[in-house]
Design a protein around this nucleic acid. Structure first.
Length: 866
RNA sequence: GCCGCGAUAGCUCAGUGGUAGAGCGCAUCCUUGGUAAGGCUGAGGUCCAGGGUUCGAAUCCCUGUCGUGGCACCA
């Protein structure tokens, strides 16, 4: 770098950067210019960036700041790169917290929700997000959920919605049903209460109709994290196997017994046939056999909760029935009822091969049933191989298996399926772990299901002309249970078919239904139809979706399903809603406790550093505190930091910069006061650099080195944003700022001043996505035209991103022994000449014979010598 | 149990075959009219361990250790 020869002089009295003044000013300027309105311009490529919309809990927290700042970087970057950008915001506004607030505080859920929305809208607007607010809606708006009711009727007409009596997950605290996806380790995802099993009449959606597509199409989602695709694949749990019938030997049931297996290769290792306790055959047996009935009752009692089912000991009951082995008519297998067999997976019946399945083995060891190995592991001898307490599930060669002997597992499976099919006893089958999606919720603060129950006509969907079905105005929320059910008049109506009296459905839809199409509604939030097809065709799919990993299965699976269903109904053209998905990490913070174990919030803590150790104490009184683990910000551990307080002290830009700079976006980031102070210092130093630049820059050639550094910076930051490595992009900006400080405006040569101007012009635009307010202020300071939000992204010249002369390290036998200078792009032969002419290298090579010289262009030279 | 991910400076993390880096923190010094501030300079690393491939390994392969995420009686 060609620095100025004059000593560094501090410019006289610099105006301190004041975010409190500049930030609101620029937000107003953007609003006045309507800068973020999404316009479907056919001349431009489109880009739809969306963050998972928030639940209006009342306050914006640091997690929101991170989530929406990440999306905002993309939105601003793509806009500057010439895309038509859609970046909308809405509210996932139905759900239990509003009803809970109603119960606890006697407020109206609707009013509570809209007040929260108003406050959070204000907070989010303060963040300076490049959002088209004209498209905003809440899922509890009649204009939204009324359209959703129409979609529900469409899906119902397609046979994708049905009603069934089924065993459901009942949350005793929230007093409602939960989908399988909402039960985590046997507990409600929201209430954390132990989930019970109940039999109820429920609305469900046939997501299983799309199970194959939902797995197969994962392969097309190449801009999704592998982890999320894997989680969905595991959740859907597609397995290929064989469904076949056992024929009863002697007295049995009238019907054959159908089982499902993924291991037809192990049929010759069969030990017994098992059925679930709630299998129809079990009921048939229980009718005649009191002992069987008692056993079934035991199974039911011992399995009230999911958690208990998972940990229960395996128990069984021998029914006395016998079935014939499909390959050996004389071989009879006993039929047992067993508690570990699930009625709602496969056929609710299995054949057990204990040697190669741990569950079956545990069961057979307990009840003294035979264990015959039929797969011989590599390297084992048939005469000595034996099964102990561990089933063998690895690869091997079939034995003890007649015509399957000598085959590998896959060939044996194929052969067994072939034979069963030829016998007419069954066929190869695909079975899924995925269950249909139970969407009924016994809560009032949700989207009413547009259906009535008529004594004459049964379950009758309402005509679309009867929509929307709205909540009663005088709904009484103060008690537990379903307020719609309790309301004195609301549910009484007439049947659209016969005109007779009918009762409205009082269940409402799972809020995940609300969020499974909102992204399509954003294409035109005010359309008459639920989805404006033309607008959706332009904007969808979402190019970049951003949210937490906690929705990897729930929301993201439902949204994919609904998109496919709506595509089949002709309402959408895309079959996948989100082309790109990014799952961001959480915001964490250290925890602090008093001696008595009470948690202490960070705002009350100060630190003292004694050498290498850092201690915490109460600001008020100085009581020493213990510093605990770094955990997700949560109210219970009091390790939260309120965004609005940070905005007040350091400004919005510093807060945004810090949450973006500290970690890669997909990882957790640790909030710290020193970190945000560092970001704040950066903001100030950036402003100093712009403020010290003279307004009248002389004409002339720019300093070459600084110019090259600028082009290199533009390339690096552009690539960093493109690849979601925002933290590295920001690190490059920090480095570059240091470079600018090393080439100050005061006393600079004209060449430096010109290069600085070019650098600052690029810099103002490069920081735009991260610190948008500061960017505008800096842009104006150096005489930029218009606003940064209207400016083009800086371009770079690839040729200028490299130095003209390269310093190449020279290794001898892999160890660094010196360096040489060579022109960029120099050919190996030329580099070799330079190396061999170098005195220092020659000295190192004295007495050695050069065997080989490896030149890596522009990088390094390695001499192999002996 | 099954399927993943990770381990690099005190902290948070870049770096995917070629000279070990950034920010923060820490230390020294300067400034004391930006002052509950600013600046200069610097120290600090068995790239988790062991083995392999290679002219060359933080990077690729194998084994192990530790941490962590998801799923889990799904036949």
């Amino acid at each position: 770098m060609t620095g100025s020869p004059t000593p560094v002089q501090r410019p006289v009295v610099m105006a301190r950067y004041n975010p409190k003044e500049t930030e609101p000013k620029w937000r107003k300027a953007w609003t006045d210019a309507d800068a973020f309105r999404a316009v479907a311009d056919p001349a431009k490529p489109k880009y739809y960036v969306l963050e998972m919309f928030p639940y209006p809990s009342g306050r914006v927290h640091m997690g929101h700041v991170r989530n929406y700042s990440l999306g905002d970087v993309i939105a601003r970057f793509k806009r500057a790169r010439g895309f038509s950008v859609l970046h909308p915001m809405g509210w996932d506004a139905f759900g239990l917290p509003a009803e809970n607030a109603a119960m606890e505080r006697g407020v109206d859920p609707r009013a509570w929700t809209y007040e929260n929305i108003a406050r959070m809208r204000q907070d989010l607007k303060q963040l300076g997000l490049a959002i088209d607010w004209s498209r905003e809606f809440a899922t509890c708006d009649v204009e939204y959920y009324g359209k959703q009711q129409a979609l529900f009727l469409d899906l119902m007409a397609r046979g994708l919605v049905y009603r069934k009596e089924s065993v459901v997950n009942w949350d005793p605290v929230d007093q409602t049903v939960l989908a399988n996806e909402q039960v985590i380790d046997g507990r409600g995802w929201r209430s954390d209460a132990l989930v019970e099993k109940r039999k109820l009449n429920q609305w469900a959606m046939r997501i299983t109709d799309y199970a194959d597509q939902l797995v197969d199409d994962l392969a097309t989602l190449d801009r999704w994290p592998d982890k999320v695709r894997l989680m969905q694949e595991n959740w859907i749990g597609r397995s290929r196997g064989l469904k076949f019938r056992f024929h009863f030997a002697g007295a049995g049931s009238d019907n054959d017994l159908q089982v499902y297996t993924t291991r037809p290769d192990t049929l010759y290792g069969a030990s017994f046939v098992g059925i679930a306790a709630d299998h129809p055959l079990a009921a048939e047996i229980a009718a005649k056999d009191p002992a069987a009935a008692a056993f079934i009752e035991t199974c039911r009692r011992g399995a009230a909760t999911e958690a208990e089912i998972e940990t229960a000991e395996k128990i069984g009951y021998d029914t006395g029935l016998r079935v014939k082995h499909p390959f050996e008519p004389d071989w009879e297998l006993p039929v047992w009822i067993a508690n570990f067999i699930l009625m709602d997976y496969g056929t609710g019946a299995i054949f057990a091969c204990p040697a190669h399945d741990q569950r079956d083995l545990d069961f057979c060891r307990k009840y003294g049933l035979p264990v015959t190995p039929v797969v011989l592991p590599p390297g084992e001898a048939p005469s000595t191989f034996a099964i102990g307490d561990e089933a063998y599930t690895g690869p091997g060669i079939l034995y003890n298996s007649k015509e399957l002997d000598g085959l590998d597992i896959e060939s044996a499976k194929a052969r067994a399926i072939q034979r069963i099919e030829a016998q007419g006893d069954g066929e190869g089958a695909t079975v899924f772990r995925l269950r249909d999606w139970g969407v009924s919720r016994q809560r009032a603060w949700g989207c009413p299901i547009p259906v009535v129950h008529c004594a004459t006509d049964g379950v009758v969907p309402l005509p679309k002309s009867a929509l929307p079905v709205t909540h009663p105005a005088d709904i009484e929320f103060g008690k537990s249970g379903n307020a719609l059910e309790r309301h004195p008049t609301w549910k009484h109506t007439t049947c659209p078919i016969c005109g007779g009296p009918a009762t409205r459905e009082t269940d409402t839809l799972d809020t995940f239904v609300d969020s499974s199409w909102y992204f399509a509604r954003f294409a035109n939030s005010h359309a008459e139809e639920p989805i404006d097809k033309a607008a959706a065709d332009y904007w969808l799919p979402v190019d970049q979706y951003i949210g937490g990993i906690e929705h990897a299965v729930l929301h993201l699976l439902y949204a994919r399903f609904v998109t496919k269903a709506l595509a089949d109904d002709g309402q959408l053209s895309v079959r996948e809603p989100f082309a790109g998905l990014f799952t961001q990490g959480m915001v964490t913070h250290e925890t602090y406790r008093r001696q008595n174990g009470e948690w202490v919030e960070p705002a009350l803590v100060e630190f003292v550093t004694e050498g290498a150790t850092r201690r915490a104490r109460l600001i008020d009184g100085g009581e020493p505190l213990s510093i605990g683990d770094i955990e997700k910000m949560s109210k219970s551990k009091k390790n939260t930091v309120a965004p609005e307080e940070i905005f007040e002290v350091y400004g919005v830009d510093a807060a945004r910069l810090f949450v973006l700079s500290d970690s890669p976006p997909e990882r957790d980031t640790q909030w710290s006061t020193s970190g945000v102070q560092g970001a704040w210092r950066f903001v100030n130093r950036v402003w100093d650099e712009f403020d010290s630049q003279p307004a009248d820059v002389p004409a002339g050639e720019p300093d070459d080195a600084l110019r090259r550094a600028t082009h290199r910076l533009v390339k690096q930051v552009t690539e960093a944003i493109d690849t979601f490595r925002f933290n590295s992009g920001i690190a490059r900006l920090y480095e570059f700022l240091n470079l600018l400080k090393a080439n100050p405006a005061a006393g600079a040569t004209p060449a430096i001043l010109v290069a600085r101007h070019e650098a600052l012009s690029a810099f103002a635009r490069l920081i735009g996505p991260f610190t948008p307010h500061l960017a505008e202020e800096c842009w104006v300071r150096i005489g930029g035209a218009g606003m940064v939000v209207e400016a083009e992204w800086p371009a770079f010249d690839l040729g200028l991103t490299e130095d003209a002369v390269k310093i190449l390290p020279v290794q001898v036998n892999g160890k660094r022994r010196g360096e040489i200078s060579a022109p960029a792009g120099a050919e190996p032969a030329d580099v070799e000449r330079i190396v061999l002419a170098d005195a220092e290298i020659a000295q190192r090579l004295e007495g050695l014979t050069i065997r080989k010289i490896i030149v890596v262009k522009d990088r390094i030279v390695n001499i192999v010598a002996a």
